[in-house]
């Protein structure tokens, strides 16, 4: 799963814009952005933060400088545990051609000490987007772990997994009422990359994405409800 291979698969699936959000890290985002730029695929860089409550929150940023500032905060909130490669696999760093340039020592699959409320507040301060991840899933979900969307979190939307429809999510989780819903592949393998959300916007950019999230000027976001 190298950056160019991800971009190639995304392009083959007809995707114009994708989000890259590794677990507690953004190290490979620049490689993905560069690989995407070469092929005309817009890459929004982010981090999937695991909060102290074991909740996964997607955090996305318009520029890599802010993203890496946020990454520093996430890293300093991680326990100092070394990755056990035999159990959890390698944490590889790559360039935009897919060459391995290094490895991360710190174990990324742990929870940070950051609360979901802090993540929400801080990411909004830094100009990023806050999206509770796969809220319908039985684990690492905001709804599963904390019962409902806290009224102070103010996410820009919520993410549902590819295994559910937005209609059934809205029925099951009343606290997401009024929030836009996106559906994502959460692809951990190339074969899982596919389009799950249709966004109507003028171009595949961060600015247009913000306008689409606000449904401004005919722009819209619509999960594709083909349950797999």
């Amino acid at each position: 799963m190298t950056p160019p291979a991800i971009i190639k698969a995304a392009k083959a699936e007809g995707l114009d814009i994708i989000g890259i959000s590794d677990h507690n890290s953004a190290e490979n985002v620049v490689a993905a952005i560069e690989a995407g730029a070469a092929e005309g695929v817009t890459v929004i860089g982010g981090i999937e933060v695991q909060t102290v409550e074991d909740v996964h929150v997607l955090t996305f940023f318009p520029c890599v400088d802010t993203l890496f500032r946020w990454q520093d905060e996430v890293y300093s909130a991680l326990p100092d545990i070394e990755n056990d490669e035999k159990r959890f696999g390698e944490q590889l760093l790559m360039d935009s051609n897919g060459n391995v340039t290094g490895k991360l020592r710190t174990f990324l699959l742990a929870s940070t000490s950051l609360s979901v409320d802090y993540v929400g507040k801080r990411v909004r301060e830094l100009g990023g987007l806050v999206i509770p991840a796969h809220i319908d899933r039985p684990s690492f979900s905001l709804i599963r772990n904390l019962g409902f969307v806290p009224d102070t979190l103010l996410p820009c939307c919520v993410e549902i997994s590819k295994n559910t429809s937005s209609g059934s999510a809205k029925e099951r989780f009343s606290s997401i009422a009024g929030l836009p819903v996106i559906k994502s592949s959460d692809a951990h393998r190339l074969s899982e990359i596919s389009a799950y959300t249709e966004i109507l916007m003028e171009e595949a950019s961060w600015e247009e994405l913000l306008l689409a999230l606000a449904f401004v000027g005919g722009r819209s976001i619509r999960p594709l409800d083909i349950v797999c």
Binding site: E53, N145, L146, G147, F148
Partner: peptide, 29 residues
């Protein structure tokens, strides 16, 4: 329980609830 969705579904009036969660949602639950 530390899963608030589980507490919402399983706990009842008068219960004493033991948890390690400290998020404000525990009060609403």
């Amino acid at each position: 329980s530390d899963l608030l969705s589980d507490v919402m579904a399983g706990a009842g009036p008068g219960d004493v609830w033991v948890t390690v969660q400290v998020h404000q949602n525990i009060i609403a639950v």
